[in-house]
Write a protein that binds this DNA or RNA. Sequence first.
DNA 1: TTGTAGGCGTTATCAG
DNA 2: CTGATAACGCCTACAA
Lengths: 344, 344
Amino acid sequence: MNFGSSMTDIDAPPTLDDVAREARVSTATVSRCINEPKMVSAPTRERVQAAIKSLGYTPNFAARSMAAKRTFTIGAIIPTMENSIFARGLQAFQEELQRHGYTLLVSSSAYRSDAEEEQIRTLVARGADGLLLIGYDRDPAIYDYLARQRVPVLVAWTFDDNARAPSIGFDNRASMRALTEKVIKMGHRQIAMISGFSQQNDRARMRILGVRDAMAANGLDPASLDPIEVPYDVQAGAEAFFRIMEQGPRPSIVLCGNDVIAVGAMRGAQQMGLSVPEDVSITGFDDIEIARVVSPELTTVHVPHRQMGTLAAKELVGMIEDKRQGVSRLLDAKIMDRASVSSV
Amino acid sequence: MNFGSSMTDIDAPPTLDDVAREARVSTATVSRCINEPKMVSAPTRERVQAAIKSLGYTPNFAARSMAAKRTFTIGAIIPTMENSIFARGLQAFQEELQRHGYTLLVSSSAYRSDAEEEQIRTLVARGADGLLLIGYDRDPAIYDYLARQRVPVLVAWTFDDNARAPSIGFDNRASMRALTEKVIKMGHRQIAMISGFSQQNDRARMRILGVRDAMAANGLDPASLDPIEVPYDVQAGAEAFFRIMEQGPRPSIVLCGNDVIAVGAMRGAQQMGLSVPEDVSITGFDDIEIARVVSPELTTVHVPHRQMGTLAAKELVGMIEDKRQGVSRLLDAKIMDRASVSSV
DNA sequence: TTGTAGGCGTTATCAG
DNA sequence: CTGATAACGCCTACAA
């Protein structure tokens, strides 16, 4: 019984108008049925819903956001998708967002601040209702721009109460300091470090400072620490490890800026025939899955990925819907004492 | 010299109108400057560009896509972001897209087909110019919907010339068959398998069939293979490995549906005090970074992640811009012979 | 080369 | 509770 259908036109997605005509009501009523169902009487509502279903109608997003000046979209820019550093947190972020009716748009900047800036503008132009950014190191002009555009921004993976935007994160510096103090107490005094690039990356910078804090507090010379900075990938970690072990006095421990680098260092050690932790201890940071997959399992700092993601989503949604300043929140990062470090 | 500025209004992002007024031209001219610069004379173009810069103008995305019926946005739905299975390919996809002026929207379905369906509708409603999907197993009604909406779709991570959508990928079945034949030639005849869930997942299903193909071709009974199906995560891989080793005759090799499971199996072996590959061989699939980080390094099937991503982007953009059917393309996946398999 | 004006699909205000 | 109708910001024939 398909012929004789009253389809208005050949093609093109159905619009509000089509639904209104089919249900014999005005477009306003259809719109209400979708957005404020309780403002419509039951009988008409049913008629409209039937029409919607029979036409296979889906609201046009662009039109909707233009009229409502809301997109129910939140943008997130992460430094990388290549490894899973941000994946778990982002997953939780997105799940919580969805619970509130928001959609997440993700893009990755490949740790390049110019790319990040461009992506911020793109997301804003797309009408993102709010933005999640990683770390607070970026051109102040960007914060100005965002403020002018009145786009709420939340920073994660770091914590700084005085920054231009509220943050949900942990204390990179204190965490790294705690880890370092622990290994110093275990007897390590020859300390080397492989860090991510610290420019435009407060997390990396703070972790270096944390190591120095611990050294200074324990009678070691913080200036003697000369971190090698490398990209966050396994290969780079391995190469940096070679360099460290081949030049000058060998350290008893190599602290790494994150787990990916640490895993690289472990591979490097293995390739050099060094065993971990007997010949050299190694630590990471983040506690991503890979940390428990290598052997020996990696001693590292556990970052509360999911909690951070969930709280960030809640806070950002709150900022958007209540039009209020966000409030920063400091989460705990705890040391995971595993097998890649031994006493000396 | 900031006071006395001629800002029209207190606030609100500047619009085309504002720019036009500032540059003393019509809105049409401003629009052209942005979209078809060569249609505008040099002097006016400069005036307009100056106005754009001084006002900090960014085109409003919703308005633009509503008027142009194009969004320059492409949606991709991947099964998971939690591990890096799809990350490298997606990164390449996005880089190539960017080169063509498109923005990528990613969402993850958590391997749930209902979630995927909802996300497809969301992306379409948002006006995605095209879609990238992983694998071809899904409700035919979805393909109908997409066809009706005239949204170009490309499938990746698999290859099937007869499917409802063109695909850029590799042959999961043949690859797994090749791997299996290889280990059979090395003497393995007691074969076990840990697979991902094969329902609604053609990749997983084809990999199982590939194993059976090889068995049948080499005088082994394909029906004797009884794959355990588990979620794609390390823990699940380890548990499945326990089950396999504890019940019935021990296999000499455990073929895994992907690297994540394989790494789980390796952990399981380690926890049982079994050494790989001396006591049991293990293989993976995908060749993600983790495969070379575990020890022994994992024998696996290398998937051409980046190539697949790049080609998929090119093809999809072509489909969109030339309004043509896409053409499928079969890529090579090659066996990476590493240390987790030994002859028996 | 540039300007005019209609329309894209919704939402929201204001009457009825 | 429901219906007109004016925005929303931009693109694109069509005209000049």
